[in-house]
């Protein structure tokens, strides 16, 4: 038996919105630790790892560890039946091939029961090594989102360069080129507006903008984004989900041959 209850139902809607443009189908792993997912995009260039810890739910019961294969697009369709202020309960029984979503309005005057078919998904978990990154940039997630959107109107790739001067995002396209530099700014009174750069070594890496722009769909989950970079390694773009966990995106770099 698996049952979880999330009073802030809009959070699940936003999590699925942050995944659905990247991943078609995925196995959700359920255990006493929480509700998690690891999945790659169809071309194996990007990977998303989600963790929603059990303590973050109002109710969380998972009698044994198991995986639920779900189509993310279908899950997004089902979640469209929930209002933003609804309480969401997800239930599944051992050995069944369906999952039930229950949406309750805050005043309990409307209850929706939605059943969705589960899928058999053959997917391998990848071992993600714990790495010490050469440069870690923390910045407002809205700022990062607007930089990615702006640059993607000019070019297809973004080069991220971290130095003592700050972090520079640059692109080049047929119509011209552009670069945006953000300097460290920790003096602000609002921590969510700070830009903090921890650098052991200067790093320069190039990535496909279409993937990074997809990651910024998670902007509403967190006021800050953390971008961790090391030479010739996938970048990690992390959005913390308050009191619950995180959504982390990994993107393989473009490499000079």
């Amino acid at each position: 038996m698996f049952e979880l209850r999330l009073v802030q139902g809009s959070l699940l809607k936003r999590v699925i919105d942050a995944i659905k443009d990247l991943v078609n189908d995925a196995n959700f792993d359920c255990s006493s630790t929480g509700f998690s997912l690891q999945a790659m995009d169809s071309s194996h260039v990007a990977l998303v790892a989600l963790l929603l810890r059990s303590e973050g739910f109002e109710h969380f019961r998972c009698d044994r560890t198991f995986s639920m294969g779900m189509s993310i697009a279908n899950m997004a369709k089902m979640l469209k039946c929930a209002s933003n202020d609804d309480i969401i309960t997800i239930k599944a029984d051992d050995g069944t091939d369906t999952v039930t979503f229950m949406f309750e309005s805050p005043s309990q005057d409307k209850i929706s029961d939605i059943e969705m078919k589960l899928m058999d998904i053959d997917s391998d978990h990848l071992g993600i090594p714990d790495a010490e990154y050469e440069a870690i940039v923390r910045m407002p997630s809205t700022e990062f989102g607007s930089i990615c959107t702006s640059l993607s109107t000019i070019g297809d790739t973004v080069t991220i360069a971290v130095s003592k001067q700050g972090v520079t995002f640059s692109t080049k396209g047929d119509i011209g080129s552009g670069n945006i530099t953000c300097r460290q700014n920790s003096s602000t009174e609002k921590p969510e507006e700070a830009t903090i750069i921890e650098m052991k070594e200067p790093v320069v890496l190039t990535f496909a903008l279409k993937y990074i722009t997809t990651f910024t769909k998670a902007t509403s989950l967190s006021s800050q984004v953390t971008i961790s970079l090391s030479s010739d390694m996938p970048v990690v773009v992390e959005y913390k989900i308050a009191e619950m966990g995180h959504i982390r995106y990994y993107l393989a770099p473009k490499i000079e041959e």
């Binding site: 260039v45 978990h125 996938p234 990994y250 393989a252």
Partner: peptide, 14 residues
């Protein structure tokens, strides 16, 4: 030229 690498080049299955 510059080429897109894949995640599986960096992270192993298991």
């Amino acid at each position: 030229g510059i080429k897109q690498s894949t995640i599986t080049k960096f992270f192993s299955k298991g």
